[in-house]
Amino acid sequence: MIWTYCGLWNNLTATSMNTLMPEEAQARHARGQPYTAIASLDEHSAATLRVEMRVETGYASVIFMDEHGRDSLDYTFTLINVSLFLETATSYGYGDSQERGGYADAERMESYEFTIEGIIRRTVEVDGEESKESRRGIDVASNWESVPSFGAYDGLIRRDRA
């Protein structure tokens, strides 16, 4: 996996803005300043995921992208004490659409909100119709992650969080 860095990600065009050299991104990481790490399979392939680090505001996000540069799965973490807690997981389905990047509208969104007390709220939205459910007593031990060192995102980018 090849990592590149930027200050911001443009969701509409599925491209990085304010490109950062690895040393600049590492310095931002050390200071707790925002940056985005973008992963590609190799130098010639499109981005497959991005890690948005915003530790100074208590936030980190991992966004997996599909072959059209659209967000397909988004994990949002909140900093609690000294660890990150997976607070929200949202998946997006685009049906047969081949629209690129942020120009595509999801036909289906499914999100899960987790609390440290073991409550989960599920929301499914399909073509503007929404359904919700909630459960208690869920084991959320796998929702916790250490704040990663710069470039060591393996724990954070685990797709299977069960």
Rank of each mutant, 00 (worst) to 15 (best):
M17F: 07
T19C: 02
M21F: 07
M21Y: 04
P22K: 02
P22H: 08
E23M: 11
E24P: 01
A25M: 08
A25V: 09
Q26I: 03
R28K: 13
H29V: 08
A30T: 02
P34N: 06
P34D: 13
P34G: 00
Y35Q: 09
T36F: 08
T36H: 11
A37R: 11
A37H: 07
A37P: 11
I38V: 15
A39N: 03
A39T: 02
L41V: 13
D42V: 09
E43F: 06
S45K: 09
A46M: 06
R50D: 09
R50Y: 15
V51S: 00
E52F: 10
V55Y: 02
T57W: 08
G58F: 05
Y59I: 04
S61R: 14
V62G: 01
V62A: 08
V62T: 07
I63D: 09
M65G: 02
M65S: 02
D66T: 03
E67Q: 10
G69E: 09
G69N: 11
G69S: 08
D71Y: 09
S72G: 01
L73E: 06
L73Y: 03
D74S: 12
Y75E: 00
F77R: 07
T78Y: 03
T78E: 13
N81D: 15
N81M: 01
V82R: 10
S83M: 11
L84G: 03
F85C: 09
L86E: 07
L86Y: 12
E87I: 00
T88D: 02
A89I: 13
A89H: 00
A89T: 13
S91L: 00
Y92I: 12
G93T: 09
G93F: 03
Y94A: 05
D96R: 11
S97K: 03
Q98E: 10
G101F: 13
G102A: 11
A104D: 08
A106Q: 07
A106P: 10
E107L: 14
S111A: 08
Y112C: 03
Y112I: 05
T115Q: 07
T115L: 08
T115H: 10
I116E: 14
G118Y: 05
I119T: 15
R121N: 09
R121D: 05
T123W: 04
T123K: 11
V124A: 04
E125A: 05
E125K: 08
V126A: 10
V126H: 10
D127L: 10
G128A: 05
E130S: 13
S131V: 15
E133C: 10
R135H: 14
R135K: 15
R135P: 00
D139I: 09
V140A: 04
V140S: 01
V140M: 01
A141K: 12
A141Y: 01
S142R: 11
N143S: 12
S146N: 10
V147N: 00
P148L: 01
S149T: 08
S149N: 12
